[in-house]
C-alpha cells in the first residue's frame, strides 16, 4: 500500500480518453517513475493528483484518505507538492521570494514557527540555486528556474513530491546533482513520482516504473524489467515488423 494511491483513474476530454483506468502506487522512501511517449497522459495524471483536473472516474488516496474531491490548495496542505513541465514559476518575483511564498503559506496553515528567510536560503542552497537567489525568476535560464520550482515545492514540506520532467533544461552536471538530491530526499522518507524523459536518470533513480501509453498503464516493474519489456519497446519505437 503506497502513501499515494492512484486507483483506476480515468480522464475524458470530449470523446478522447486521456487517461484510461490508470492505477499507480507511490510508496514512501523511494522514487517511482512514470514514463511514456508524448501525449500518453502523464501531465494530465499529475493534474488529477494535484486537483487541477477533475477525473471522470477513479480515486486518489493519500495516506489511506480519499482526496479525490479535495480542492487543490487543500491537497497542497495535506502534503502533495509538484513541479510543472512547462515552468509555472512566479516570474516577476525573485527566486528567494518564490520559495518564501510557499514557506509563508505553510507557516500560516501548519501554524508552525520558523524563520522563513533562513529556511528559504537553505532550500535554495540544497537544490543548487543559491547563487541566483535574488534574481527575478523570469530572467533565469530554464535549468535554474526549474531548480527554483523544486525548492518552492520542497518548501511546502510535502509527503509526496511530483516532478514533471525536472531534468529538461538542466545540463549534465545539474542532472547528476538532481539524481543525488532525489536519493537524499527519499532517504528522508519522501515519496517521489517522477515523469522524465532522461532515461539514464529514470533508470538510475527509480525503484519502480510504470509505463503509460494512450492513457493506459501498459507495463510496470523494475527498471531492468521495463528495459527488457517488448511492449514498452513497441510503445516507443512503433511496430517492430521492419526492425532489424
Amino acid at each position: 500500500m503506497g502513501l499515494l494511491e492512484i486507483d483506476e483513474v480515468s480522464v475524458q476530454f470530449g470523446g478522447l480518453l486521456a487517461v484510461d483506468d490508470a492505477s499507480i502506487s507511490v510508496p514512501e522512501g523511494c522514487v517511482t517513475g512514470l514514463i511514456g511517449p508524448n501525449g500518453a497522459g502523464k501531465t494530465t495524471l499529475f493534474n488529477v493528483i494535484t486537483g487541477l483536473q477533475a477525473p471522470s472516474g477513479g480515486r486518489v488516496r493519500l495516506d489511506g484518505a480519499d482526496i479525490t474531491r479535495r480542492r487543490p490548495y487543500r491537497r497542497a496542505r495535506l502534503g502533495i507538492a509538484r513541479t510543472f513541465q512547462r515552468l509555472e514559476a512566479f516570474g516577476s518575483l525573485t527566486a528567494r521570494e518564490n520559495v518564501l511564498v510557499a514557506l509563508e503559506m505553510r507557516r500560516r496553515w501548519a501554524k508552525s514557527r520558523y524563520d522563513s528567510g533562513k529556511i528559504a536560503a537553505e532550500l535554495l542552497e540544497r537544490v543548487g540555486a543559491a547563487q541566483v537567489a535574488d534574481k527575478r525568476v523570469d530572467s533565469l535560464p530554464t535549468g535554474s528556474a526549474r531548480l527554483v520550482e523544486l525548492a518552492r515545492a520542497l518548501a511546502t514540506d510535502p509527503k509526496v513530491l511530483l516532478l514533471d520532467e525536472p531534468s529538461s533544461g538542466l545540463d549534465e552536471q545539474e542532472t547528476d546533482a538532481l539524481g543525488v538530491l532525489l536519493h537524499e530526499l527519499t532517504a528522508d522518507g519522501l515519496a517521489v513520482l517522477l515523469v522524465e524523459h532522461d532515461m539514464p536518470l529514470v533508470m538510475e533513480a527509480c525503484t519502480h516504473i510504470s509505463v503509460l501509453d494512450f492513457g493506459r498503464i501498459i507495463a510496470e516493474g523494475t527498471p531492468a524489467e521495463i528495459q527488457a519489456d517488448p511492449s514498452v519497446q513497441r510503445a516507443y519505437l512503433g511496430t517492430a515488423k521492419s526492425a532489424s
Binding site: P200, I226, Q233, S244
Partner: peptide, 14 residues
C-alpha cells in the same frame, strides 16, 4: 541509425 535507436529511447550512456 537503426541500431542506435533503442539505446537512445530506453536509456544508455550519454
Amino acid at each position: 541509425i537503426a541500431d542506435e535507436l533503442a539505446d537512445a529511447y530506453l536509456g544508455a550512456e550519454h
